[in-house]
Computed example of a mutant assay.
Amino acid sequence: MPYSKFTLSRAVEDFDLTVREESNLFAAIEPVVPTPLLREILVENVPWAVAVGSEKARFSF
């Protein structure tokens, strides 16, 4: 199923999932500083992916 057609209710039904809603699920996890390489990759590629606008472009950088 393409992401543009995804809905939570459909995923729950198709995969027999159980939704657990918890607040502060990640509260105990410390933030991680991205590496310089990751920052460089994002700076170079995110504007292109956003400009192209396709699902493939957004997830292929």
Rank of each mutant, 00 (worst) to 15 (best):
A51P: 00
E40G: 04
V12T: 08
Y3R: 14
P47D: 09
P47R: 03
V43Y: 04
F6Y: 15
W48Q: 04
P31F: 04
A57S: 09
V19D: 06
S60N: 05
Y3A: 12
T35L: 07
I41P: 00
E13D: 12
V33K: 13
A51D: 09
E22Y: 00
P36Y: 08
E40D: 14
N45I: 03
L17Y: 10
K56F: 08
L38E: 06
A49G: 01
F26L: 15
E21I: 10
M1C: 12
V50Q: 07
V50M: 06
I29P: 01
P36K: 12
A27S: 14
A27D: 15
F15V: 05
P2M: 13
P2I: 11
S4Y: 13
L42Q: 10
A51K: 04
L38C: 03
P2V: 12
P47K: 02
V32A: 05
V52K: 11
V43D: 09
W48M: 06
F26Y: 13
F61N: 04
L17D: 07
S23Y: 09
M1E: 15
E40H: 06
R10N: 00
F59V: 11
L8D: 01
F15E: 10
W48F: 08
E13C: 06
Y3H: 13
E13H: 11
S60C: 07
A51C: 02
V33C: 06
A28K: 15
Y3L: 15
E21K: 11
S9L: 14
L25H: 14
I41A: 00
S4G: 15
L37R: 06
V43T: 12
I41M: 02
I29T: 13
A51Y: 01
L42S: 06
P2K: 14
T7W: 00
A57F: 00
N45K: 10
V19L: 12
V19I: 15
A57P: 01
V19F: 04
D14L: 11
L25V: 14
L25D: 08
P34G: 02
